[in-house]
Design a protein around this nucleic acid. Sequence first.
RNA 1: GCGGGUGUGGCGGAAUUGGCAGACGCGCAGGAUUUAGGUUCCUGUGUCCUCGGACGUGAGGGUUCAAGUCCCUCCACCCGCACCA
Length: 822
Amino acid sequence: MADEDIETYDVEAIQSRWLPIWDDLAPFRSGVPGDERPTKYVLDMFPYPSGDLHMGHAEAYALGDVIARYWVQQGFNVLHPIGWDAFGLPAENAAIRNGEDPRAWTYANIEQQKASMRRYACSFDWDRVLNTCDPEYYHWNQWLFLQMFQRGLAYRKASNVNWCPNCQTVLANEQVVAGECERCDTPVTKKKLTQWYFKITDYADRLLDDMTQLEDAWPEKVLLMQRNWIGRSTGAEVQFVIEGRDDPVTVYTTRPDTLYGATFFVVAADSDLAAELAAGTPAEAEFTEYLEQVKRTSEMDRLNSERDKTGVFLQRYAINPVNGERIPVWASDYVLADYGTGAIMAVPAHDQRDLDFARAFDLPVRVVVEAGEDPAVTGVATADDGPHVNSGPLDGLDKAAAIERILEVLAERGTGTVAVNYRLRDWLISRQRFWGTPIPIVHCDICGEVPVPMEQLPVTLPSAEGLDLKPKGTSPLGAATEWANVVCPKCGGPATRDADTMDTFVDSSWYYLRYLDPHLDTAPFDVDQAKRWMPVDQYVGGVTHAILHLLYSRFFTKVLYDLGMVDFTEPFTRLLNQGMVVMNGSAMSKSRGNLVRLSDELAEHGVDAIRLTMVFAGPPEDDVDWADVSPAGAKKFLARAWRLAGDVTSEPGADSAVGDVGLRKVTHKAVHEAGLAVESYRFNVAVAKTMELVNASRKAIDSGCGPADPAVREAAEAVAIMLSLVAPYTAEDMWARLGHEPCVALAGWPQVDPELLVEDSVTCVIQVAGKVRERLEVSPGIAEDELRELALTAPAVIKALDGAGVRTVIVRAPKLVNIVPA
RNA sequence: GCGGGUGUGGCGGAAUUGGCAGACGCGCAGGAUUUAGGUUCCUGUGUCCUCGGACGUGAGGGUUCAAGUCCCUCCACCCGCACCA
């Protein structure tokens, strides 16, 4: 029999048999009118169309599909959409390399990925596909931009921005990783440019505070990263008069209690204030030279905290508002121009950076909090709490009391107040590239920034033909004169379009709403559909987006809430971060020579075996090391399960109630435990439970109740349904072999009979001094006294006690007895 | 430097509230079937052992009748942030 069966579990044949049938039946269509099932929204992060799908996609989508298909089996109408995040630099760069139109290149890749995705058989609703590079999509990026523009949430300002010399475009703070461009690893430099921003800082508090909604539903790690990224700190703003300057300068500090310890004052070298203070002083030349040096320092060097402190004394003095002391003003690059006010009071005794600076330039160190050794001697600033000294009215107070007191003092004198600061900066969205959403603004010499009227949207991208897409620091769109030159919508005079395009993170900040009605042409999304489906019940994607994409999406959601378009404030109720697929411990890459091609793996083992391998490899959050797993083993198991279906000889509908009780108990327990495992993301465990059921069924057929017993059919059908979450082709073919019509995906999760979960007998472990000496089969309802008696009289126990008396007997009926000898 | 996480057989990993450590699988070994085996099926597989047992979840200590699980100290690896005043 072996020979025929090997031929019969023919992966290729099974795949090509069911794919067209599923296409026809479309079992995962979520928008069928009159569908009464309760709803769930399962969302996978949409792919970027750079070539075909790879191993990472295979893992992520296999995991998301387990959840989506499980909820379908549980009777939900599951919205499980897919689309393409199709704008962006890589497509454009590739297009430049190949001399192709980025549009053609992108759509060709999308078609290829779409075909692969279909074969991969995820439970996507193919009626809802969207591409962010379609005008019908980015139309609404522009619409949303204008909504924000009207509310002052989109604005233009000049500032020193992160610049990637390789990509020849600006980058958001979030796209600079360790001083390098996140995309190409080129060291990032600074450039002064006028750019568009979204005012995400207005939402800093809400982004932080609303995270309480996400506790226990998002990975703690992601919440922590977001908290750190927003970086809220509470302190005080204190005003210092600068000699020879009319207006005082405000500094931000989290330690206003150490104000009496301020021995010098530092302004950010690259701030306007520094230039102003240096102007006309004897230090001006030295300052100018220093500033040049600072500008030459790459972001990467600047981030090196081991670097020695540098700076220039500006030959000016600030007056400490509490004691009138005259302290020198320095300019240094260790103070950041764009955090707080760009100026600080330096308290070297209690801040390490200030101490390092003080030691470098021989500035005085004054202890105002007694907390250990003298920092001037040790070189280590003390940040701990302790009684204040040398601090006038603060003397003797601890930190909390001193802060409270000094704030009162400052308030009385009108020279200081409580203040909150954030690490988070506004989101820079302008990009000097072609393949993105045009910013819907027209620049007019007379009227300034004029929004494109809503009815003129979308502002579509011109053809790339004839345009030089090579990065040169300005947007290629500016060279499309026919496109760029327009009349001002306001005054009718000559004007030009804004030639920059939007950061592609704008596209992905709201795409989950667009899926609800991807072809709607009157609004970005259907508000009523949003009431029905949103927020997303389960989001699945890589931890690489822990900050960027998730923070931006949360921000957009809150803006939409304020616009009255949605009635929730957080878009993603639960988040699962899947791990990566690696090879021999490191990320796969062509240059490392450890790249595994998904298409090769699929050809060799089949879709189901690859999906099963991904799911069974371990917890979904962990990386899958392809060197450690066995797709061949997965295929072997699938064939084994599949053969089970062929061995069943009872008819469909056979009454399982009269079947073998032993096997039925195994079946119901496996179904029950697999369901619990899926719901708690332990998909690998759910697979293990399915395997156990297959093993038990095999045994029942070969050496137990036999293939005709209805319990065997019940077990095999349960296997097919459980397997349908992971291995849809095999499961469907099993279902057919068991005499059912498609689709197994809609068969419904097997009902668990609670009575069959109750064991007839339980193995009770009898320990003596914590060591197992005997196992007894007992009834689950056994009384403590009876169990104690049984345990104490067991021969093995008497032997282990070896005449010693009994001190205590711990009884945990019915599973355990521990006898403590005297 | 600051913050967080993880350490369980040869390997990937299991293990409600502290209650049989190693489920399930890979690999390996042996056997059966086979002309053959990158097939299928069965059996075994933590370590040591004087075959009664002893030891065993990164190391050391503690709490407990009982610790992979709780507490303390340490080690290793991984991730995030990195002059944010």
